[in-house]
Design a binder for these strands. Structure first.
Length: 145
DNA sequence: GCCAACGTTGGC
DNA sequence: GCCAACGTTGGC
């Protein structure tokens, strides 16, 4: 089981829209970056991720789960681009802002801080636990702390 | 809306 | 295979 972070501009694809898809989930399409694509190819069913709103909001707003392995991105004919499907698991009880992440020494090495532009990022177990804690969530049980 | 960072493209 | 030009991302 691995942890990830998915970034989306809320006016393009928001957490509300993601949640509305329920357990069917939705393709995480539109990624045109090799690093981000490679991370998606590494993902397994059941991997968990943070759902982060970039541009507007700038905060982790929810938890998602990978529900389909990497497959061709339906929004392009270009065979280079694959994507996974993700489904919403639960809200972050208290959204965790980029500001808070940057202010936390334990998260200084987090990709969200060091690789700001990467749209799909790996998250370490320690980072997962810490961000969940900040958001009022138990990172292991995914129940409010 | 600005601009810095950075990935991609294409000419050589 | 280098590197300049260009486009995009995303925080501010």
């Amino acid at each position: 089981m691995k942890y990830w972070l998915f970034k989306s501009e809320p006016f393009k694809w928001s957490w509300e829209q993601q949640k509305a898809k329920g357990d069917i989930g939705e393709e995480w399409d539109g990624v045109r970056n090799y690093q981000a694509r490679n991370f998606m190819r590494d993902m397994e069913i059941g991997d968990l991720g943070f759902f982060y709103h970039s541009n507007k909001g700038l905060e982790v707003v929810g938890i998602v789960e990978v529900c389909a392995l990497a497959h061709p991105d339906s929004t392009t004919d270009d065979a280079r681009w694959d994507c996974v499907d993700i489904k919403a698991v639960c809200d972050m009880p208290v959204p965790v802002s980029l500001k808070q992440v940057k202010a936390n020494e334990k998260l200084a090495e987090m990709s969200l801080v060091t690789s700001m532009r990467l749209s799909v990022q790996p998250v370490t177990p320690a980072e997962w636990a810490e961000v969940c804690r900040m958001g009022g969530l138990n990172g292991a049980s995914l129940k409010p702390a």
